[in-house]
Amino acid sequence: MSRRTGKRTFALTGVYAVAAGTVVGDMEGKGPFGPYYDRVLKDDLFGEKTWEKAESKMFQFAVDKAIEKAGLKTGDVDCLIGGDLLNQIISSSFAARELHIPYLGIYGACSTFSEATLLGGLLIDSRSMDCAVCATSTHFSTAERQYRMPLELGTGRTPTAQRTTTAAGACVLRSRGPGVRVTGCTLGEIVDWHIKDANNMGAAMAPAAADTIAAHLLETERAPGYYDCILTGDLGHHGSEVAIKLLRQRGFDISKNHADCGIEIYPADADVQSGGSGCGCSAVVFGAFYLKELMNGRINRLLLVSTGALLSPTSTLQGETIPGIAHAVAFESGEEG
Protein backbone atom coordinates (compact mmCIF):
# COMPACT_ATOMS: atom_id res chain seq x y z
CA MET A 1 0.00 0.00 0.00
CA SER A 2 1.45 3.36 -0.87
CA ARG A 3 2.03 5.97 1.71
CA ARG A 4 1.43 9.52 0.82
CA THR A 5 4.45 11.42 2.11
CA GLY A 6 3.49 14.81 0.85
CA LYS A 7 0.95 16.67 -1.23
CA ARG A 8 2.22 15.12 -4.46
CA THR A 9 4.59 12.36 -3.41
CA PHE A 10 3.79 8.70 -2.82
CA ALA A 11 6.06 5.96 -1.48
CA LEU A 12 5.47 2.70 -3.33
CA THR A 13 6.07 -0.87 -2.16
CA GLY A 14 6.09 -4.10 -4.08
CA VAL A 15 6.61 -2.57 -7.51
CA TYR A 16 9.46 -3.80 -9.68
CA ALA A 17 10.78 -2.68 -13.07
CA VAL A 18 11.76 -6.03 -14.53
CA ALA A 19 12.61 -5.46 -18.20
CA ALA A 20 12.60 -2.90 -20.99
CA GLY A 21 12.41 -2.98 -24.80
CA THR A 22 13.94 -0.23 -26.94
CA VAL A 23 14.24 0.61 -30.64
CA VAL A 24 15.81 3.74 -32.11
CA GLY A 25 16.71 5.37 -35.40
CA ASP A 26 20.09 5.51 -37.07
CA MET A 27 21.36 8.74 -35.53
CA GLU A 28 20.40 7.67 -32.02
CA GLY A 29 22.06 4.33 -32.69
CA LYS A 30 25.32 6.15 -33.33
CA GLY A 31 25.16 7.73 -29.89
CA PRO A 32 26.86 6.43 -26.75
CA PHE A 33 24.10 3.91 -25.97
CA GLY A 34 24.14 2.34 -29.43
CA PRO A 35 25.13 -1.14 -28.29
CA TYR A 36 22.45 -1.20 -25.59
CA TYR A 37 19.32 -0.80 -27.69
CA ASP A 38 17.39 -3.87 -28.72
CA ARG A 39 17.23 -2.62 -32.29
CA VAL A 40 18.69 0.24 -34.34
CA LEU A 41 16.83 1.09 -37.54
CA LYS A 42 18.96 1.98 -40.55
CA ASP A 43 15.87 3.10 -42.42
CA ASP A 44 13.47 5.12 -40.35
CA LEU A 45 10.50 4.00 -42.40
CA PHE A 46 10.93 0.54 -40.79
CA GLY A 47 9.61 -1.02 -43.97
CA GLU A 48 6.36 0.97 -43.83
CA LYS A 49 4.88 3.47 -46.28
CA THR A 50 4.61 6.40 -43.92
CA TRP A 51 6.57 7.61 -40.91
CA GLU A 52 3.43 7.48 -38.77
CA LYS A 53 3.07 3.79 -39.51
CA ALA A 54 6.76 3.30 -38.78
CA GLU A 55 6.44 4.97 -35.39
CA SER A 56 3.52 2.79 -34.49
CA LYS A 57 5.47 -0.29 -35.51
CA MET A 58 8.37 0.86 -33.32
CA PHE A 59 6.00 1.28 -30.37
CA GLN A 60 4.66 -2.21 -30.88
CA PHE A 61 8.17 -3.63 -31.21
CA ALA A 62 9.28 -2.05 -27.95
CA VAL A 63 6.29 -3.41 -26.05
CA ASP A 64 6.65 -6.92 -27.50
CA LYS A 65 10.37 -6.92 -26.73
CA ALA A 66 9.92 -5.76 -23.16
CA ILE A 67 7.30 -8.42 -22.48
CA GLU A 68 9.52 -11.08 -24.07
CA LYS A 69 12.55 -10.04 -22.02
CA ALA A 70 10.43 -10.18 -18.88
CA GLY A 71 9.71 -13.83 -19.65
CA LEU A 72 6.00 -13.13 -20.02
CA LYS A 73 3.30 -13.25 -22.63
CA THR A 74 0.97 -10.41 -23.64
CA GLY A 75 -1.84 -12.25 -21.84
CA ASP A 76 0.05 -11.81 -18.58
CA VAL A 77 -0.04 -8.04 -18.85
CA ASP A 78 -2.96 -6.36 -17.11
CA CYS A 79 -2.62 -3.01 -18.75
CA LEU A 80 -0.69 -1.00 -21.37
CA ILE A 81 -0.20 2.63 -20.44
CA GLY A 82 1.23 4.63 -23.28
CA GLY A 83 1.38 7.79 -25.33
CA ASP A 84 3.28 9.72 -27.97
CA LEU A 85 3.48 13.18 -29.48
CA LEU A 86 1.12 12.82 -32.42
CA ASN A 87 -2.38 14.20 -32.65
CA GLN A 88 -4.77 11.89 -30.86
CA ILE A 89 -1.73 9.72 -29.88
CA ILE A 90 -2.22 7.54 -32.93
CA SER A 91 1.15 5.79 -32.67
CA SER A 92 0.19 4.28 -29.35
CA SER A 93 -3.42 3.57 -30.21
CA PHE A 94 -2.68 1.85 -33.50
CA ALA A 95 0.06 -0.21 -31.86
CA ALA A 96 -2.30 -1.14 -29.04
CA ARG A 97 -4.78 -2.29 -31.65
CA GLU A 98 -2.30 -5.04 -32.55
CA LEU A 99 -1.31 -5.89 -28.99
CA HIS A 100 -4.64 -6.87 -27.43
CA ILE A 101 -3.79 -5.58 -23.98
CA PRO A 102 -6.23 -3.34 -22.08
CA TYR A 103 -5.05 0.10 -23.08
CA LEU A 104 -4.88 3.44 -21.29
CA GLY A 105 -3.70 6.15 -23.68
CA ILE A 106 -2.18 9.20 -22.01
CA TYR A 107 -0.68 12.46 -23.17
CA GLY A 108 2.11 14.21 -21.30
CA ALA A 109 4.13 15.44 -24.25
CA CYS A 110 7.73 14.53 -23.51
CA SER A 111 6.93 13.70 -19.89
CA THR A 112 4.79 10.76 -20.95
CA PHE A 113 7.28 8.05 -20.00
CA SER A 114 7.59 9.01 -16.36
CA GLU A 115 3.84 9.72 -16.29
CA ALA A 116 3.13 6.21 -17.59
CA THR A 117 5.62 4.60 -15.19
CA LEU A 118 4.21 6.54 -12.26
CA LEU A 119 0.65 5.47 -13.11
CA GLY A 120 1.73 1.83 -13.57
CA GLY A 121 3.51 1.98 -10.24
CA LEU A 122 0.49 3.35 -8.40
CA LEU A 123 -1.82 0.73 -9.95
CA ILE A 124 0.46 -2.15 -8.98
CA ASP A 125 1.22 -0.76 -5.53
CA SER A 126 -2.49 -0.52 -4.79
CA ARG A 127 -2.73 -4.19 -5.73
CA SER A 128 -5.28 -3.38 -8.43
CA MET A 129 -2.93 -4.98 -10.93
CA ASP A 130 0.05 -7.30 -11.07
CA CYS A 131 1.68 -6.30 -14.31
CA ALA A 132 1.71 -3.18 -16.46
CA VAL A 133 3.69 -2.10 -19.51
CA CYS A 134 4.56 1.59 -19.75
CA ALA A 135 5.55 2.74 -23.23
CA THR A 136 6.13 5.83 -25.37
CA SER A 137 7.42 6.63 -28.83
CA THR A 138 8.56 9.54 -30.95
CA HIS A 139 9.84 9.92 -34.50
CA PHE A 140 11.76 12.83 -35.94
CA SER A 141 9.81 13.01 -39.16
CA THR A 142 6.31 12.64 -37.72
CA ALA A 143 7.04 15.36 -35.19
CA GLU A 144 8.54 17.74 -37.73
CA ARG A 145 5.62 17.55 -40.12
CA GLN A 146 3.07 17.98 -37.33
CA TYR A 147 4.68 20.63 -35.18
CA ARG A 148 7.21 22.41 -37.33
CA MET A 149 8.05 22.64 -40.97
CA PRO A 150 8.04 20.25 -43.90
CA LEU A 151 11.37 18.43 -43.93
CA GLU A 152 12.73 19.89 -47.15
CA LEU A 153 12.04 23.51 -46.26
CA GLY A 154 15.16 25.60 -46.53
CA THR A 155 15.13 27.43 -43.21
CA GLY A 156 17.75 26.86 -40.55
CA ARG A 157 17.43 25.85 -36.89
CA THR A 158 18.20 28.01 -33.88
CA PRO A 159 20.92 27.09 -31.37
CA THR A 160 18.38 26.31 -28.65
CA ALA A 161 16.32 24.02 -30.84
CA GLN A 162 16.28 20.31 -30.12
CA ARG A 163 15.99 17.34 -32.42
CA THR A 164 13.01 15.07 -31.84
CA THR A 165 14.44 11.62 -31.34
CA THR A 166 13.32 8.59 -33.33
CA ALA A 167 12.87 6.25 -30.39
CA ALA A 168 10.35 3.91 -28.80
CA GLY A 169 10.74 2.40 -25.36
CA ALA A 170 8.64 0.20 -23.11
CA CYS A 171 9.16 -0.92 -19.50
CA VAL A 172 7.46 -3.83 -17.74
CA LEU A 173 6.41 -3.25 -14.13
CA ARG A 174 5.41 -6.19 -11.89
CA SER A 175 4.32 -6.85 -8.37
CA ARG A 176 7.30 -9.14 -7.83
CA GLY A 177 10.97 -9.26 -8.86
CA PRO A 178 13.63 -9.93 -9.71
CA GLY A 179 13.99 -6.36 -10.80
CA VAL A 180 14.69 -2.82 -9.79
CA ARG A 181 12.38 -1.49 -7.08
CA VAL A 182 10.15 1.43 -8.00
CA THR A 183 10.13 3.14 -4.64
CA GLY A 184 8.20 6.32 -5.11
CA CYS A 185 6.84 9.02 -7.35
CA THR A 186 5.98 12.71 -7.35
CA LEU A 187 3.22 14.02 -9.57
CA GLY A 188 3.95 17.14 -11.56
CA GLU A 189 1.94 20.35 -11.62
CA ILE A 190 1.84 22.54 -14.69
CA VAL A 191 4.34 25.38 -14.45
CA ASP A 192 4.25 28.18 -17.00
CA TRP A 193 6.89 30.91 -16.85
CA HIS A 194 5.71 32.70 -19.97
CA ILE A 195 8.08 31.38 -22.59
CA LYS A 196 6.58 31.71 -26.08
CA ASP A 197 9.48 30.51 -28.19
CA ALA A 198 8.67 27.02 -29.46
CA ASN A 199 12.32 26.74 -30.49
CA ASN A 200 13.42 26.85 -26.87
CA MET A 201 11.55 24.02 -25.17
CA GLY A 202 14.35 23.50 -22.66
CA ALA A 203 13.76 26.94 -21.17
CA ALA A 204 9.99 26.38 -21.18
CA MET A 205 10.25 23.09 -19.27
CA ALA A 206 13.06 23.92 -16.84
CA PRO A 207 10.80 25.62 -14.24
CA ALA A 208 8.54 22.54 -14.18
CA ALA A 209 11.53 20.22 -13.73
CA ALA A 210 12.84 22.35 -10.89
CA ASP A 211 9.41 22.48 -9.29
CA THR A 212 8.87 18.72 -9.31
CA ILE A 213 12.41 17.87 -8.20
CA ALA A 214 12.18 20.38 -5.36
CA ALA A 215 8.77 19.07 -4.31
CA HIS A 216 10.06 15.50 -4.37
CA LEU A 217 13.14 16.28 -2.26
CA LEU A 218 11.13 18.32 0.24
CA GLU A 219 8.34 15.79 0.56
CA THR A 220 10.71 12.82 0.95
CA GLU A 221 13.06 14.87 3.17
CA ARG A 222 16.01 13.80 1.04
CA ALA A 223 19.04 15.73 -0.16
CA PRO A 224 19.90 15.66 -3.86
CA GLY A 225 22.90 13.46 -2.98
CA TYR A 226 20.55 10.66 -1.87
CA TYR A 227 20.33 9.77 -5.55
CA ASP A 228 23.32 8.60 -7.56
CA CYS A 229 21.65 10.20 -10.56
CA ILE A 230 18.84 12.69 -11.14
CA LEU A 231 17.94 12.00 -14.75
CA THR A 232 15.85 14.57 -16.57
CA GLY A 233 14.14 13.73 -19.85
CA ASP A 234 15.00 16.31 -22.45
CA LEU A 235 15.94 19.67 -21.04
CA GLY A 236 18.94 19.72 -23.36
CA HIS A 237 22.10 21.68 -22.66
CA HIS A 238 20.50 25.05 -22.16
CA GLY A 239 17.39 23.88 -20.33
CA SER A 240 19.59 21.89 -17.94
CA GLU A 241 21.70 24.93 -17.08
CA VAL A 242 18.57 26.88 -16.24
CA ALA A 243 17.00 24.06 -14.22
CA ILE A 244 20.15 23.65 -12.12
CA LYS A 245 20.14 27.39 -11.49
CA LEU A 246 16.47 27.41 -10.49
CA LEU A 247 17.03 24.56 -8.06
CA ARG A 248 20.05 26.28 -6.59
CA GLN A 249 17.79 29.24 -5.85
CA ARG A 250 15.69 26.92 -3.74
CA GLY A 251 18.67 25.53 -1.91
CA PHE A 252 19.19 22.32 -3.88
CA ASP A 253 22.41 21.62 -5.74
CA ILE A 254 21.92 18.91 -8.36
CA SER A 255 24.87 19.91 -10.52
CA LYS A 256 26.97 16.96 -9.36
CA ASN A 257 24.57 14.14 -10.06
CA HIS A 258 22.37 15.55 -12.82
CA ALA A 259 22.17 13.93 -16.22
CA ASP A 260 19.82 14.58 -19.12
CA CYS A 261 18.65 12.01 -21.65
CA GLY A 262 18.41 14.62 -24.39
CA ILE A 263 22.05 15.57 -23.93
CA GLU A 264 23.31 12.01 -23.70
CA ILE A 265 21.42 10.29 -26.49
CA TYR A 266 23.35 11.73 -29.41
CA PRO A 267 27.05 11.50 -30.20
CA ALA A 268 28.96 14.49 -28.89
CA ASP A 269 29.72 15.81 -32.36
CA ALA A 270 26.22 15.48 -33.76
CA ASP A 271 24.65 18.59 -35.25
CA VAL A 272 21.72 18.72 -32.89
CA GLN A 273 21.94 22.18 -31.33
CA SER A 274 20.72 21.75 -27.76
CA GLY A 275 20.20 17.98 -27.80
CA GLY A 276 17.49 15.42 -28.32
CA SER A 277 13.86 15.62 -27.25
CA GLY A 278 10.65 13.65 -27.32
CA CYS A 279 8.99 11.21 -24.96
CA GLY A 280 10.80 8.33 -26.62
CA CYS A 281 14.10 9.87 -25.59
CA SER A 282 13.84 9.23 -21.86
CA ALA A 283 12.13 5.89 -22.45
CA VAL A 284 15.03 4.46 -24.45
CA VAL A 285 17.88 6.06 -22.50
CA PHE A 286 16.39 4.80 -19.24
CA GLY A 287 15.22 1.48 -20.64
CA ALA A 288 18.39 0.54 -22.50
CA PHE A 289 21.06 1.94 -20.22
CA TYR A 290 20.11 3.25 -16.82
CA LEU A 291 17.78 0.39 -15.97
CA LYS A 292 20.63 -1.98 -16.71
CA GLU A 293 22.99 0.03 -14.52
CA LEU A 294 20.47 -0.22 -11.70
CA MET A 295 20.06 -3.95 -12.23
CA ASN A 296 23.82 -4.47 -12.13
CA GLY A 297 24.14 -2.40 -9.01
CA ARG A 298 26.45 0.11 -10.67
CA ILE A 299 23.89 2.72 -9.75
CA ASN A 300 21.81 2.27 -6.62
CA ARG A 301 19.30 5.08 -6.62
CA LEU A 302 17.97 7.03 -9.57
CA LEU A 303 15.29 9.68 -9.92
CA LEU A 304 13.79 9.81 -13.40
CA VAL A 305 12.19 13.17 -14.24
CA SER A 306 10.75 13.29 -17.74
CA THR A 307 9.73 16.81 -18.73
CA GLY A 308 7.02 17.90 -21.15
CA ALA A 309 5.97 21.08 -22.95
CA LEU A 310 2.21 21.13 -23.25
CA LEU A 311 1.69 23.30 -26.30
CA SER A 312 -0.08 22.65 -29.58
CA PRO A 313 0.56 24.05 -33.07
CA THR A 314 -2.59 26.18 -32.64
CA SER A 315 -1.76 27.52 -29.19
CA THR A 316 1.46 29.16 -30.31
CA LEU A 317 -0.26 30.78 -33.28
CA GLN A 318 -2.79 32.23 -30.87
CA GLY A 319 0.00 33.83 -28.90
CA GLU A 320 -0.16 31.48 -25.92
CA THR A 321 2.85 30.76 -23.73
CA ILE A 322 4.25 27.25 -23.27
CA PRO A 323 3.24 25.41 -20.06
CA GLY A 324 5.62 22.75 -18.78
CA ILE A 325 5.22 19.69 -16.60
CA ALA A 326 7.54 17.13 -15.05
CA HIS A 327 6.84 13.85 -13.27
CA ALA A 328 9.35 12.09 -11.04
CA VAL A 329 9.79 8.36 -10.44
CA ALA A 330 12.33 6.94 -7.97
CA PHE A 331 14.15 3.65 -8.58
CA GLU A 332 16.39 1.73 -6.19
CA SER A 333 18.37 -1.45 -6.67
CA GLY A 334 18.82 -4.16 -4.04
CA GLU A 335 16.35 -5.51 -1.49
CA GLU A 336 13.77 -3.51 0.48
CA GLY A 337 15.57 -1.42 3.10
Binding site: P159, W193, H194, I195, D197, A203, P207, V242, L246
Partner: peptide
Amino acid sequence: LRPENYDAYIQKNMPK
Protein backbone atom coordinates in the same frame (compact mmCIF):
# COMPACT_ATOMS: atom_id res chain seq x y z
CA LEU B 1 14.51 34.07 -11.38
CA ARG B 2 10.76 34.45 -11.13
CA PRO B 3 7.99 34.07 -13.68
CA GLU B 4 8.03 37.84 -14.25
CA ASN B 5 11.68 38.17 -15.22
CA TYR B 6 12.25 34.68 -16.61
CA ASP B 7 11.53 35.39 -20.28
CA ALA B 8 13.83 38.41 -20.30
CA TYR B 9 16.60 36.37 -18.65
CA ILE B 10 16.25 33.57 -21.21
CA GLN B 11 16.29 36.04 -24.13
CA LYS B 12 19.44 37.58 -22.77
CA ASN B 13 21.32 34.43 -21.88
CA MET B 14 20.34 31.81 -24.37
CA PRO B 15 22.94 31.29 -27.08
CA LYS B 16 22.37 33.09 -30.33
